[in-house]
């Protein structure tokens, strides 16, 4: 029972990360109909900007980086959201610039070209980031911003074999932050004028333009929004796993699985992305625990292929219409 609860909690925390990243993939796909392979690199960027800003900001709050990590005082609690917002804003701007320079000129080109451009942008970001005067190649430790409080703990069994399950503050914050961001996005997409415009563009770009919707501006905004969510995911990832890796397999896999999540949920569908994120995390965690950890990634991709074969447009995707 303890094991089950533990696995469940891990799956929820990881699932919310996947969902946040999947949202970015799905929004861009919904509007521009291409897979934005550079999206996972924005997540990395978000993580590294969080790292850089906290290295720069924390000494003002009595955190001395020359002493060992265990002896450093905890910075005030409000620093974490400040860093989150800085990282989100910076990534938003970078997302805007990328869209403006690399994707907008290709608006009428075949989709495959945009895809290749996205791969190019991804390569560019990865290798730029590894330059030694930017972030470098060595992994860095993210300073601790959140206290490791235990909000609640349960004990299962007794005596020798008693095992404890702890709900930690960090995990709760990850879930809470992603849930808040998802609710904000939900409101934005389904309740505001801008969201209506986004959905209109995604439905039919040309008609939307004829209706007086500034298509380019809406697309830019989508990119900014997606990049901000990605940055938030990057920040939360380094909160949970404090080692910050440059362009490492960590990020490639994270991006890939989030992308799979978006597809499973029905790419282009905002609610589907969230659902997909959690489904992936559950399959991965429970599969690894109850079946075997060796084939953890196989479960995810096998599930993907299975779902696509049964329901070719994902769980919540609308059926494709054939146009003649």
């Amino acid at each position: 029972m303890a094991d089950f609860t533990q696995t469940l909690m891990t799956a929820v925390a990881i699932g919310s990360l996947y969902a946040l990243i999947a949202l970015g993939y799905t929004m861009v796909y919904g509007i521009l109909k291409f897979i934005n392979f550079a999206h996972s690199d924005i997540v990395v960027l978000g993580a590294w900007i969080s790292y850089t800003t906290s290295r720069w900001l924390l000494p003002y709050f009595g955190v001395d980086f020359s002493v060992s990590a265990a002896d450093r005082p905890l910075p005030p609690l409000w620093i974490a959201p400040v860093i989150l917002i800085i990282s989100m804003l910076t990534c938003g701007i970078i997302g805007f610039v990328i869209e403006r320079l690399a994707y907008r000129p290709l608006r009428r080109a075949p989709r495959l070209n945009v895809l290749i451009t996205a791969i190019g942008v991804s390569l560019l970001l990865q290798n730029l980031g590894q330059l030694h005067f930017l972030f470098g190649t060595s992994p860095q430790t993210m300073p601790i911003l959140l206290p490791n409080w235990e909000l609640a703990s349960f004990t299962f069994g007794s005596g020798e074999s008693a095992s404890r399950v702890v709900i930690s503050f960090v995990d709760t914050m990850i879930f809470a932050t992603s849930a808040t961001l998802m609710l904000v996005l939900e409101y934005l997409v389904f309740r505001t004028k801008l969201g209506t415009a986004m959905r209109a563009v995604s439905f039919n770009t040309d008609t939307a333009a004829l209706m007086g919707i500034p298509v380019d501006r809406v697309i830019s905004f989508t990119f900014v929004l997606g990049s901000m969510l990605a940055a938030a995911a990057g920040f939360l990832q380094v909160m949970k796993y404090p080692l910050n890796q440059p362009a490492h397999t960590v990020w490639v896999l994270l991006g890939l699985k989030a992308f799979v999540a978006a597809v499973i949920g029905g790419i282009g569908n905002v609610r589907g992305a969230v659902l997909g994120g959690f489904v992936i995390a559950f399959v991965e965690q429970f599969g690894a625990f109850y079946i075997s950890s060796q084939y953890r990634d196989v479960y995810v991709f096998a599930l993907l292929i299975g779902i696509l074969l049964v329901k070719p447009t994902g769980l919540l995707g609308s059926p494709l219409r054939e146009k003649v």
Binding site: T7, Q237, V250, A288, F289, R296
Partner: peptide, 10 residues
């Protein structure tokens, strides 16, 4: 797997 960040299940 190289790239995993979460080892809770294992």
């Amino acid at each position: 797997q190289a790239g995993d960040q979460d080892f809770s299940a294992q």
